[in-house]
Design a protein around this nucleic acid. Structure first.
Length: 1099
RNA sequence: GGGCCGGUAGCUCAGCCUGGUUAGAGCGCACGCCUGAUAAGCGUGAGGUCGUUGGUUCAACUCCAACCCGGCCCA
């Protein structure tokens, strides 16, 4: 048996694994294997099947897959059912495009039947791509039997939920001012609104409403209310003005601009002064007030503010009920001459004027105030967002386009005070990008405000990653919860299951099942489909007493978020079937989606489950943020900076992408898609891992070692605790890394876990363990004495690689599976258990090895400083480890080899070459000496020699600092050594290394011998020899070289596998001959393979 | 305007919760090394007013406040 070579390319490897998964049905096997084990419940958020998947989807899918694989390896059964979100506006918008039509009237013209049919047909345009992509990136998900929100069974479950909500008394029909998309012809719910805020420039209009009541009559200049709006078109529907009794209001006598420029003020004779009412807080920003020093100039106010003088304070009692003349009498449906002032809390004076124009039909606050004050609802706008024809001047115009004309008219009336523009974010339709209008409409609501406290409680019990999304984004949002606008005046969606009597609106029934509907309607067709328009034809006679009416379904469909939020039960067709499955899979242990789902899926899940089941449907949420382009900009089709997931996979492989997305930063931080970062993870972690395996496989094959055993010459390796120190260390590290990785993954600290594995593989496994133990992997090497049995090295490295593949399995499922199959008996890594510590932890050893690595780094720096290469042995190094620790002999040996020195000496022996000094420990001194700390510390730093020595030996000393005594205890200081003399000294964080630079002939000779070995090795390779080919070797050079080789003859021969070594002979006639130069010495090499037959001594 | 996140080396990010020695990695750059993993590998070095200002403290990258910049979400 031998270890296979890794496939040449990442892509080949991943394809090979994909095929194995296919053949062996590994995903399903992983579920079968855990059948009956405790469930780890995971919900898949349904993507819209008619949108294309992008790289940002890979992030969420990587997280979800990672979690599911991890818990499967931990012995849990993790159901993963795919889902498709199939209803709603996105689908309808696509269908409109397909049919070449736009807007509700055109849809109705071609017929709902045909339109809905088109929606249905277009649904799964990209389904295959979604599935292919998921498969390719290793996202294991059950696509065979997905939940699909338009399936009748699914809809039936949704209806059931609506009925539950209705039975709780939380479903109602209302009339409210809602964001409304004039293009789509439907209102949007508050969470849909969340998707579509964009910066937009709108008019900022200050107008003057003449006061008609109160005194101040006579000759006094006419008084006006100063009123601000960013929607001039709503002035047509003005019915009142609101003020806040908590604010202070003033009357300003204003000198209004040069006449004509801003329109005339006051109809009588173009008077240029006027009395203007507004809040005090805004007066300074809008006027240059007399008596003020003008310090308000610059920011806030406009440079062209008119001059003004505060005439008096206006008590709010005076404001209430004040009557003004309405502007813009254009709508014949509302001819009221005047309106009044009403108090309202929502009025602020942070912007505007502290006086707010009220049009109840077109604003949420306005609407509420209108209801409270019984104001008329004036809505001269049709469902397409145009003024109705009978409106003078602007009839038929889309409202926003009427702004200019309306402002002109206002100016003509002399009521225009100032007109600017303002840049603010404004809600747009999240699908078609049309600016939304707030308009009063009839809609069905879920009274979520009634369960607000429960929502908050449940949300607080959810563990959010990161927590601030739960407490902040979600929590704040729930605090300000408004009722869920459930209905949509559209076509392709779950029909709202409400039937109303045409004779008496009060006769209503909410249908919660098909059976019930069948009872009512006297049977349903065999292949009943509950969609529009068929469902609209299901009617029955009202059975209220003495009612002759017919029960007809209301025309609306439901918000698609309600569909997806119903998936915990609807995916099982609960409660009609799947009772047991539902119980087993509710609530979810985890869900993981983008932060944009906070008010989307996260909310709809929470709201529905809280009402229906009185609890949150998920325990934990991992939130991910966007994937941005390399410059940190949002990816968007319009900007053309999207990254095609397929070409990225082609180029880097799925493992690399998954690792990159998880390691580059925490999931909830926005991430840049950086191709260089991708290459890095590929080169560092993945290539290092591959190389380490390749190294292992090469020598295991060469020496015929296999983890299955078999070759008797290996015998039994000793138990780990008796192996060489490097093995004990590596096995200890494996346990530590396994324990920490388990803990991190349990806590969903995915990034931390993946980064740790990265560090472990690159730094510890490859660049330390393998590098330091390489020569134990070949039997023939000169260092392979009995103590360093190769079998133990193979066994240790094999364990390490196998464990590493297990640890990496959740995040890098391909390479880990490939490796695991080679390193086990062919099993998939994904059917294995996640590693747990196996009792080999040796924290003291790990710490000591840290010391060694620290000292080695300093030693290399010192060598660098001396300009002496590592191949040249040095006599001695003095080292200090913080806290006066020393190293066991086994590690001293490691350090000696790493630094290529003959001797390592510790401080007790180093008195003559180091100088002691003390460094203050502020965390000890600070609390004791308070403000004297700096002075004491300074005194400590000046300690030397015997004082420092006493401290190091555990005695306290007395100092006098600024005339006051100060006791310095050993724990207050760290005693450090620094080198003296010609030693090369390096120190850092309490570690110190001092290298003795002196060389003698012996050391030089050894250095030369090593140099020769290195050249021979390179030459072997260049000559095309295999690493285990034996050779005949001839070495010649000057006297010094030849002497060095003779002195180290065995070493040179052993290292180079020279069965025959001649020194000083002519190299001519050998197969391979070369002339070189080492350290200014000439060197001639000649070598050829050693043919064993030929070598037999002839008889 | 409000909420949340972020601002640390040219770039990508740790560290901050729980204040304490000389703020760390990787990439890139410069220089060098090693090689029985070889179209790999390793090391050393240069490089930082820790966004700004103020405060608390013996001591602030860390805690507090205000502000600035970027992002997301909302009004």
């Amino acid at each position: 048996m031998s270890y296979r070579e890794l496939p040449e390319s990442t892509s080949d490897l991943e394809q090979e694994i994909l095929e194995r998964w296919e053949e062996e049905d590994t995903f399903r096997e992983s579920l079968r294997e855990r059948e009956g084990d405790p469930e780890y419940v995971f919900y898949e958020g349904p993507p819209t099947a008619n949108g294309r998947p992008g790289v940002h989807h890979i992030l969420a899918r990587t997280i979800k897959d990672l979690v599911a694989r991890y818990w499967t390896m931990r012995g849990r059964h993790v159901t993963r059912i795919a889902g498709w979100d199939t209803h709603g506006l996105p689908v309808e918008v696509e269908a409109e495009k397909e049919l070449g039509i736009s807007g509700k009237p055109e849809i109705e013209e071609i017929g709902i039947e045909r339109f809905v049919q088109t929606c249905r047909e277009n649904l799964f345009t990209y389904q295959e791509e979604w599935e292919d992509l998921s498969r390719r990136i290793g996202y294991w998900l059950d696509y065979d039997d997905p939940y699909v929100t338009y399936h009748p069974d699914y809809i039936e479950s949704v209806w059931w939920a609506v009925k539950q909500i209705h039975d709780e008394g939380l479903l109602y029909q209302g009339y409210k001012s809602l964001p409304y998309c004039p293009r789509c012809g439907t209102g949007l719910s508050s969470h849909e609104l969340a998707q579509g805020y964009e910066q937009r420039r709108d008019p900022s209009l200050f107008s003057l409403f003449p006061v008609v009541s109160g005194d101040g009559g006579g000759d006094a200049p006419r008084r006006h209310l100063l009123v601000w709006t960013t929607t001039p078109w709503t002035l047509v529907s003005n019915v009142a003005v609101a003020f806040n009794p908590e604010l202070a209001y003033v009357e300003v006598e204003a000198l209004l601009g040069r006449s004509g420029e801003r329109g005339r003020v006051g109809e009588e004779g173009g008077a240029r002064t006027a009395r203007v009412l507004l809040s005090r807080g805004r007066a300074e920003d809008l006027f240059r007030l007399e008596g003020s020093d003008g310090s308000g100039d610059g920011e806030g106010g406009s440079p062209e503010r008119p001059r003004g003088r505060i005439v008096r304070e206006v008590p709010s009692g005076e404001l209430e009920g004040l009557e003004y003349r309405r502007p813009l009498h254009l709508y014949p449906g509302y001819r009221e001459e005047s309106g009044r002032l009403h108090p309202a809390e929502f009025v602020s004076d942070e912007e505007g004027t502290g006086l707010v124009h009220i049009a109840p039909a077109f604003g949420a606050d306005d609407f509420e105030l209108g209801k409270e004050r019984d104001l008329p609802l004036v809505r001269p706008v049709d469902d397409d967002g145009r003024f109705v024809p009978e409106v003078e001047e602007v009839g038929g115009l889309p409202v926003k386009e009427a702004d200019d004309r309306l402002v002109e008219l206002l100016a003509e009336e002399g009521l225009l005070f100032r007109r600017d523009t303002v840049l603010h974010s404004y809600p747009h339709c999240w699908r078609c990008d049309t600016p939304l209008l707030y308009m009063a409409q009839e809609s069905w609501y879920v009274e979520t405000t009634a369960v607000k406290e429960r929502l908050l409680e449940e949300n607080a019990s959810v563990e959010w990653h990161p927590p601030e999304v739960g407490s902040g984004r979600m929590g704040e949002w729930l605090e300000n919860n408004v009722d869920w606008a459930l209905s949509r005046d559209r076509f392709w969606g779950t029909p709202l299951p409400v039937w109303v009597c045409d004779a008496d609106e009060g006769h209503r029934e909410v249908i919660g099942s098909f059976d019930r509907l069948s009872d009512r309607a006297g049977g349903l067709p065999e292949d009943f489909d509950p969609h529009r328009p068929e469902i609209d034809r299901v009617q029955w006679s009202c059975d209220e007493d003495d009612c002759e009416g017919t029960m007809t379904r209301v025309p609306q469909v439901m918000d698609a978020w309600f569909d997806s939020g119903s998936m915990p039960f609807a995916q099982w067709h609960y409660p009609f079937e799947g009772e047991e499955e539902f119980r087993r899979h509710f609530p979810a242990d985890i869900i993981a989606e983008g932060v944009d789902q906070t008010r989307g899926w996260f909310y709809s899940l929470l709201a529905i489950s809280t009402i229906v089941f009185d609890r949150s449907p998920y325990r934990e949420v991992v939130v991910n943020d966007l994937v941005l382009d390399a410059e940190g900009r949002k990816m968007s089709k319009s900007r053309g900076n999207t990254v095609d997931p397929w070409s990225a996979i082609e180029r880097h492989g799925a493992d690399a992408i998954r690792l990159y997305l998880i390691t580059s930063s925490n999931p909830w931080l926005p991430k840049r898609w950086d191709p260089e970062g991708l290459e890095e993870i590929q080169r560092k972690l993945l290539d290092t891992l591959r190389n380490t395996y390749r190294f292992f496989a090469m020598y295991a094959n060469l020496e015929d070692w296999h983890h299955g055993g078999g070759d008797a010459r290996w015998g039994e390796p000793r138990p780990p605790s008796e192996r060489p120190v490097m093995d004990r260390w590596l096995l200890s590290r494996l346990d530590t890394v396994a324990a920490r990785t388990r803990q991190d993954l349990e806590e969903n600290e995915l990034t931390r876990a993946a980064r740790r594995l990265d560090d472990f593989v690159v730094d510890e496994l490859s660049n330390w363990y393998v590098r330091r133990t390489r020569d134990r992997f070949w039997v023939t090497g000169s260092s392979s004495d009995g103590e360093l049995r190769p079998a133990e090295a193979f066994d240790t490295l094999h364990r390490a690689l196998r464990t590493t593949s297990l640890l990496l399995a959740p995040v890098a499922p391909f390479i880990s599976d490939w490796l695991h199959r080679e390193l086990s008996i062919g099993d998939s890594v994904h059917l294995a258990d996640f590693p747990e510590p196996s009792g080999h932890r040796r924290p003291d050893l790990e710490e000591a090895m840290e010391d060694v690595r620290e000292l080695a780094a300093l030693g290399r720096a010192a060598r660098e400083e001396l300009g002496v290469k590592v191949r040249q042995p040095l006599r001695r190094v003095e080292v200090v480890i913080p806290g006066g620790r020393t190293l066991p002999d086994s590690l001293v040996r490691v350090l000696k080899e790493e630094l290529n020195v003959k001797r390592v000496a510790f401080p007790s022996e180093t008195a003559d070459i180091v100088r002691l000094h003390a460094r203050p420990d502020y965390s000890e001194l600070g609390p004791r000496f308070g403000s004297r700390t700096p002075a004491v510390a300074e005194a400590v730093e000046e300690l030397e020699g015997s004082d420092a020595r006493r401290l190091r030996e555990g005695e306290s000393i007395e100092l006098v600092v600024d005339g006051e005594p100060a006791e310095i205890r050993p724990r207050d200081v760290q005693v450090l050594e620094s080198g003296r003399g010609e030693y090369a000294v390096r120190s850092e964080r309490g570690y110190m290394v001092a290298l003795d630079p002196s060389l003698d002939a012996e050391l030089r000779a050894e250095g030369l011998a090593r140099e020769v070995v290195s050249r021979v090795q390179r030459f072997r390779r260049d000559a095309g020899l295999d690493v285990d080919d034996r050779i005949r070797l001839v070495v010649a050079g000057d006297e010094e070289v030849e002497a060095a080789v003779r002195a180290h003859r065995e070493y040179v021969a052993g290292e180079t596998l020279a069965l025959e070594l001649e020194v000083g002979q002519a190299a001519d006639g050998r197969d391979h001959v070369t002339e070189l130069n080492v350290d200014d010495h000439p060197l001639r090499l000649g070598l050829e393979p050693f043919d064993e037959e030929e070598a037999q001594p002839t008889g």
